[in-house]
């Protein structure tokens, strides 16, 4: 059976999403995309310069990829909606990753404003992928608001600290009937694999690939890790045992 992730009517066979903001040169992005085999690439609309041939990041993204513009820089739902409209007018398609951040110290998302923006944009037929702090009630509200997926953070953006919010994400995976894409905080391929093993539908990585000494090689490493993690999830790992099996069982007398 083909293992396919469907979002907004698009069928994806690769579950690694790529961020583009931190690369040492735009010119390496095509190779990174190739090696990561990613099918979904996010771009901050604030960075897109349609008037600059060399400077226009969109020229470096494979046309077969799904473009997922993001609303980086939005401080309120209203600003996120305006940026989404700019994205659509710029011909960036109808996917939108909502980022509403009004905290420049930790770059933590404003869940409340994110829900509001999701509701507005879903009604306008955008495929909305909101970036949030993992919270079950928020995720439920996003389902009702018409989100196409939920993107909880594993740790603050750029922190490379891994799945610090693991238990909260696990609850979203169990309870929410939408794709759960772990976004932000994943610093190593092993952490991406960990997210996938636990049942995340996809992961989004930027910093860990872009700031590696060899981003192209690291893109390949993440691709393998995401695939391995997914395969392990599908294979159904054996039950984890916290304690070893005792050689002198306490309930042995019941036999």
């Amino acid at each position: 059976m083909r293992d396919v992730l469907t979002i907004g009517g698009k069928e994806l066979t690769n579950r690694l999403f790529l961020g583009t903001g931190k690369f040492p040169a735009k010119s390496i992005i095509p190779k990174v995309i190739k090696n990561s085999e990613t099918q979904v690439v996010t771009v901050a609309i604030r960075r897109v310069d349609l008037n600059g041939e060399q400077e226009n990041i969109l020229n470096y993204i494979d046309k077969d990829c799904i473009l997922m513009p993001n609303t980086s820089g939005a401080r309120t739902a209203e600003e996120a909606v305006r940026i989404a409209h700019i994205a659509r007018a710029a011909g960036c398609g109808n996917w939108i990753k909502i980022e509403v951040i009004n905290d420049n110290k930790y770059l933590l998302p404003d869940n409340y404003e994110t829900i509001k923006a999701t509701e507005i944009l879903a009604k306008e037929d955008f495929v909305v992928l909101p970036y949030v702090s993992p919270d079950l009630m928020v995720a439920k509200a996003l389902v009702n608001a018409g989100a196409a997926a939920v993107m909880p953070l594993g740790a603050p953006i750029g922190s490379n600290r891994g799945l610090k919010t693991k238990e909260l994400i696990r609850i979203l995976i169990d309870e929410i009937d939408l794709p759960i894409i772990v976004d932000a905080g994943i610093g190593k391929p092993s952490q991406a694999a960990e997210a996938m093993e636990m049942g995340a539908d996809a992961v989004l990585v930027n910093t860990a690939i872009a700031t590696a000494d060899d981003p192209i090689k690291m893109a390949a490493a993440f691709n393998f890790a995401v695939k391995a993690g997914r395969l392990a999830y599908l294979a159904g790992p054996g039950a984890e045992k916290i304690h070893g099996e005792a050689s002198s069982p306490l309930t042995g007398f019941l036999r």
């Binding site: 690369f23 040492p24 040169a25 735009k26 609309i45 604030r46 960075r47 897109v48 310069d49 600059g52 400077e55 820089g73 939005a74 600003e79 305006r82 940026i83 700019i86």
Partner: peptide, 16 residues
């Protein structure tokens, strides 16, 4: 900047 292994970014905001 490119020679130092960094990307020069000429646009990082968009009037909204």
């Amino acid at each position: 900047i490119l020679n130092k292994g960094y990307q020069p970014v000429l646009k990082d905001w968009q009037y909204i």
